[in-house]
Design a protein around this nucleic acid. Sequence first.
DNA 1: CTGTTGATGTCTGTGACTGACGTCAGTCAC
DNA 2: GTGACTGACGTCAGTCACAGACATCAACAG
Lengths: 196, 196
Amino acid sequence: MGRWEPGARERLQAAALELFATRGFEQTTAAEIAQAVGLTERTFFRHFSDKREVLFFGQQEFLQAFIDGVEAAPPETSPLEVIASALQAAASFFPDERRSYSRMRQSVIDQNPPLQERELHKLAGLATTVAAALRARGIGEPAATLAAESGATVFGIAFTQWIRDGETRSLAAIASDVLRELLDLTGAATASRPFP
Amino acid sequence: MGRWEPGARERLQAAALELFATRGFEQTTAAEIAQAVGLTERTFFRHFSDKREVLFFGQQEFLQAFIDGVEAAPPETSPLEVIASALQAAASFFPDERRSYSRMRQSVIDQNPPLQERELHKLAGLATTVAAALRARGIGEPAATLAAESGATVFGIAFTQWIRDGETRSLAAIASDVLRELLDLTGAATASRPFP
DNA sequence: CTGTTGATGTCTGTGACTGACGTCAGTCAC
DNA sequence: GTGACTGACGTCAGTCACAGACATCAACAG
């Protein structure tokens, strides 16, 4: 056994979520989180660049899943089909067992503007990365960015629906539905062609 | 003459942008901004809820323009046509004279993650408000949110293009083009109908 | 047995932000 | 004209997020 308990980062993340959920984000200091797992404030900030990051660290695999989904699509696939593939890959990172945890986490975020800002920033980063992956497939601008941002939007709406009370469908199924709705929406507009 | 020079808020905003542009956002303290216009730090925070807000205060009219554009659309208009109307209305808030100022401001934001987070939060707030306006017109979910978010995305991409070096088209023209691209993108996907 | 390394603690400082309270010019009632 | 009132500001003191510098100590390589 080492000098310290292993998994300091994970313990800090768990303690932080619990404290944020009970006392609230602002009413919880970084020192309190650290103390709750037998560490000091300084160590907290060694693991997380700032207090908010404790709720967002470790999303690298999720982002990678999204990218993998992009690259898994066969060549010459239309941008939105690539996005559909990416959405399915990303959704696999949120199996139903994770739903209740996600719900709790999201309720904390929804109650704190600073956390919402960070979440939006992460989502924007995702869109930027996906856009780059699309460009690497030969898709030009602004199509790549447009498709990537639309994918992020669809994912966000689907995720919100996934954690709603009473929702039982899988995230993959919901995401597929939402993407379909987006196509219907724009399809309807394209059909009538009232745009200059 | 009063005891103090009038327009404290505007003077603070101007000084802040200038200092952020020269020294950088992190290297500029709120106290320095205040001192630059003969005020104290405490007064700075009376005008702006936090340091970042000095760059974002006063966007109420812009948001209102967007909403006005939504409400100006004739009844029974398809969601994306409503968005097109809103985009045109919003674009009128950025005449060409404002381009160079916007460029400077954006370059400051682009260099500072905390400012980017705030900007995304404001844009998300815009989408939320527009979605509510669409729902008030009888558009259901998720169509309303989807359309509003797409509108925000289009505006964001168009604005980025409007700011680019060498760009001479008006924001309204660019926004119109980007929206057209979005329709082409989804239209192409809808045409082949490869989605389940 | 010894040098190095990695994760941690300790100490100390800066700057964002807040609450309580004091100040003073203009304004309005009387 | 005088006094109460108000709005915009200053002063003071405090909390907390975060960062740099340095010490500590188990583990591990040699």
